[in-house]
Design a binder for these strands. Structure first.
Lengths: 166, 166
DNA sequence: CTTCCTGCAAATATTTTGCATGTGT
DNA sequence: ACACATGCAAAATATTTGCAGGAAG
């Protein structure tokens, strides 16, 4: 038997509304996946999510993980991004606030930032080119505070830097 | 018999110097690839380059294309980036000037921009976070001047927008 | 009872790698 | 000669898709 609407967290309700609006079905897999996504602390990838679910005894197939993540992106509950490595990264959207990222090449820490002045400057640039912006991605790669203090392995760092395809 | 150094364009000379410095060899394939890369108008991907070479009767294997592009990136003659689709994009570096990109979701036009104020603002942000920037990527997706005038296919556009993994 | 969903395995797409053979230095 | 390079085909990686059986509305 299904729980009442009001028993479910907001994100599950939002997903349900979205699914209904498209005549799609609210399945156990979809609910479990949303729950796990919002249980994750920030950034994760498809494989991590798949593993995490498996560990909790919810063995949802990879195909369904990808299919559901895609729905969540369309519904606006999840953001998908690429950090220059070979696979996509995802993050639960907890507010509508857009942000950009600082990415540590040593420890993979991801620091979020938002600067209205920067957003405004982008708009100015677009205006000059007669370009209509619809989405943007701004990523800064380097070393976080902690990793600057540590002695980092220079060749490894140089390699990661050169392999960034962003 | 090899041509004299002075007969070759600057980028080939730079590549030769780089190869020598690492005890790597100056092969016909490598020279042809550099030539083609600098013959390309701006952005291209590995497959386009491979095709272009094949059409000119220089059938260089895919493996060698990838291996050589990697060397060119290391040597600084080529920049590698990802525009949110599934494959890497490359561009010949014709000057040391860094730039960012406006990317049209309708016609795939890539417009380069550089704004010192924006670069400075990034540095300020990094300072605040105690972050040491080493590389950055800033991409704005939307519609170029020409495509705004055209009637674009809204569903297609929405789909591309939602599928951007950046 | 219809439509949509799932898991599986196969297909795709892009890039990398092992190996035998070939080629600059 | 030696070390490095090439092409090929297979592997690796990440993601998508067709299909047959299963579940939601």
């Amino acid at each position: 038997m299904r729980k009442q609407k009001t028993d479910r967290p907001e994100e599950q309700q939002r997903f349900e509304t979205f699914l209904r609006s498209r005549q799609l079905k609210l399945t156990g897999e979809r609910l479990e996946l949303v729950e796990e996504v919002f249980g994750q602390a920030h950034h994760f990838d498809a494989d991590q999510l798949h593993m995490a679910l498996k560990q909790k005894g919810k063995a949802i197939s990879r195909a369904t993980v990808y299919r559901t993540l895609d729905l969540l992106v369309q519904c606006g509950l999840v953001r998908k991004s690429s950090f220059g490595d070979q696979h996509a990264h995802y993050e639960a959207v907890r507010s509508d606030e857009h942000h950009d990222h600082l990415i540590c090449l040593n420890c993979d820490a991801i620091i979020e930032f938002f600067r209205p002045k920067l957003e405004a400057l982008q708009d100015t640039i677009c205006q000059e080119y007669g370009f209509k912006p619809m989405h943007h991605s701004h990523q800064i790669f380097g070393l976080c505070k902690d990793c600057q203090a540590l002695e980092t392995d220079a060749p490894t760092l140089a390699h990661r830097l050169s392999q960034l395809n962003v």
